[in-house]
Design a protein around this nucleic acid. Structure first.
Lengths: 246, 246
DNA sequence: ACGTACACCGTACGTCGTGGGGTACGGTGC
DNA sequence: GCACCGTACCCCACGACGTACGGTGTACGT
C-alpha cells in the first residue's frame, strides 16, 4: 500500500545491512561503488553519474549494482557521506571554538572544490550518514565551552554550513556556466559584464550601475574568511548566563 | 569553433530577441511557456519538467519549443526569473533598511514554499535575469543609507539570500524525502529519530545524543526571523567612516 | 547434504533531451 | 505586386537514462 516499488527494507540506506550472510560473497563493497561514482562525478558532474557508467567503472553489469544499492538516489546518499569522510577531524577540539569552526569551514570549502557536484547534492540529500554524524559530533565538541545552548550550537553549525555551501555554489555555478558555454572564466565574466552593461544602460538601475562600474571582484578567499568570521562573531555574543573564564 | 552545438546567438537567453520580425507570427511568448513549466514544476518538482510535458501543456509539439528556447537549461533560467517577478517591491525603501531586507527575506521564503523547486534551481542557475536585477536594485536602494560600502552591501544581500535558500532547502529536502518514501512528515521524522537513536546508542556520539534527546524542534518561523536578524545585526556594525545619525 | 537466499546479468519498457529535415507562412527588398 | 528567404511548426529518430523482470549459478545455515 505504501509507496510504489520501495523494497520491504528500511528507507535509510545506512540502516540496511551490507551483507546478510547468506548466498554468494558480494564482489564489491558499497564504498567501492560509491567511490567509483564519486570519481565519475568529479570529472563530469553529478549528471554524468549513471548506473551504466558506474557499473562499467567498477566492472560489473548495470543491474548488478541494484544488489548493493536500492536506487540511484541512495547511491547519491552514499556518495555524499563518502566524501564526508574526507574531513580530518582532530581527536580533540583545540579549545578555541572559533578557530575550530573556521577550520571546518575551510575543509568544507576545499571539499566543495574537489567535488564540484557536492554542494548541489548535500542540499537535496541532506540526510545524516555516519560521517556527517562524526562531523556533527566534533563540531558540538568544539562548541562545548562556547556558552551557547544546544539549540544555538546546532543553529550555528547549520549556519556555517549553509554559508559555505551558498558561497561555493555561486562560485561553482558561474564556473559551470562558463565551461558549458565554451568560454574561459575570463571570457564568461567579460560576456556577463557586457550583458549587464547593456541592461543597465537604460538608466533604470542606477545603483546597480554604480556597483558594477567599480567591479573590483575581490579575492574570494579573503571574502570567505571575512564572512565566516562575521557569522561566528554574530553568535559569539549569545553566550548563556553561566560565566566563562575567558 | 567555440563550443559544440550552441547556436550562433548570444549565450544569455535574455540577450536573445524574442522576435526578429521575419517569418510567421509565433503562437506563444516565452513567458507563457515558462509559466507552463513553472506550473508543472510546482506540482511535480523540477524533475517533472520535460520538454514534452511543457509542450503538451502549452499546446504544441515538443520540438516547437525549441523555437522559443535554445535548450532546457535556458528554460529553467526563464522559470527562475519569471517567479523572481513575484517580488512585490515597494516604489521606495521605507527608510529602515533592516525592516526592508527582512521583508525581502520573508517574501523570498514564501516564494520558496510556493515553488519548492526554486531553491535548487537558483543555486545551479544563478544568472541575473531582468527581475533579479530589479530585486537587486531595490535591495541596494534600501541599503543606501546603511553606511555600508558597495562591496559590503552586495555581500549582505548575498548573505541574506544564501541564508534563506539554505534554510528553505533543508526544510524542503526533508519534506521531499518524506513524500517520496510514502510517509507523512511525522512518520518520516519518527523514522529518522529512530535511526538516529540506534546510531547514537553505541555511545560514540555522546553530545549528539544529548542534543537529540531533547529535540524540541522549535517553530521554524521564529528561528527564521532570529537567524536573519542575526545576519543583519552582523553587518549593522560595519558602517563606514562617515557618521550616520543613529 | 540439502534447500534456499542471494549475487549476477541479459533483455526490455517507458521516458528523457534534442538533431535533421520537410512544409507553410509572412515581413522585406526590388 | 512579386519573389525571396528566415522562421514557426511538426514528425521521426537516435542514443542514453532508471529500473522491473526473470533466469542461472553459488555458498551459507540447517
Amino acid at each position: 500500500m505504501a509507496a510504489s516499488g520501495r523494497a520491504a527494507g528500511p528507507d535509510v540506506i545506512w540502516a540496511r545491512p551490507e551483507r546478510t550472510g547468506r548466498g554468494p560473497r558480494p564482489a564489491f563493497t558499497r564504498d567501492e561503488i560509491a567511490a567509483a561514482a564519486v570519481r565519475i562525478a568529479d570529472e563530469g558532474g553529478l549528471a554524468a553519474v549513471s548506473m551504466r557508467r558506474v557499473a562499467t567503472a567498477v566492472g560489473c553489469a548495470t543491474m548488478s549494482l541494484y544488489n548493493y544499492v536500492p536506487s540511484k538516489g541512495d547511491l547519491v546518499d552514499l556518495m555524499v557521506d563518502l566524501v564526508g569522510g574526507e574531513y580530518e577531524l582532530p581527536a580533540e577540539p583545540s579549545g578555541d571554538w572559533r578557530a575550530d569552526l573556521l577550520q571546518l569551514a575551510h575543509q568544507e570549502r576545499a571539499m566543495m572544490r574537489r567535488h564540484p557536484w557536492l554542494a548541489g547534492a548535500v542540499l537535496s540529500h541532506n540526510f545524516l550518514g555516519p560521517n556527517a554524524l562524526s562531523y556533527l559530533e566534533f563540531a558540538l565538541a568544539a562548541l562545548a565551552d562556547s556558552g551557547l545552548d544546544d539549540g544555538l550550537k546546532m543553529e550555528l553549525i547549520a549556519m556555517v554550513n549553509g554559508t559555505v555551501i551558498s558561497m561555493a555554489s555561486s562560485e561553482l555555478a558561474t564556473a559551470e556556466r562558463a565551461k558549458e558555454s565554451g568560454h574561459t572564466l575570463e571570457q564568461h565574466r567579460a560576456a556577463q559584464a557586457g550583458y549587464l552593461a547593456r541592461i543597465v544602460a537604460d538608466g533604470r538601475h542606477p545603483r546597480l550601475a554604480r556597483v558594477f562600474a567599480d567591479s573590483s571582484v575581490p579575492a574570494a578567499d579573503e571574502v570567505f574568511d571575512r564572512v565566516i568570521g562575521r557569522v561566528l562573531d554574530g553568535y559569539a555574543g549569545s553566550a548563556g548566563p553561566e560565566p566563562e573564564g575567558r
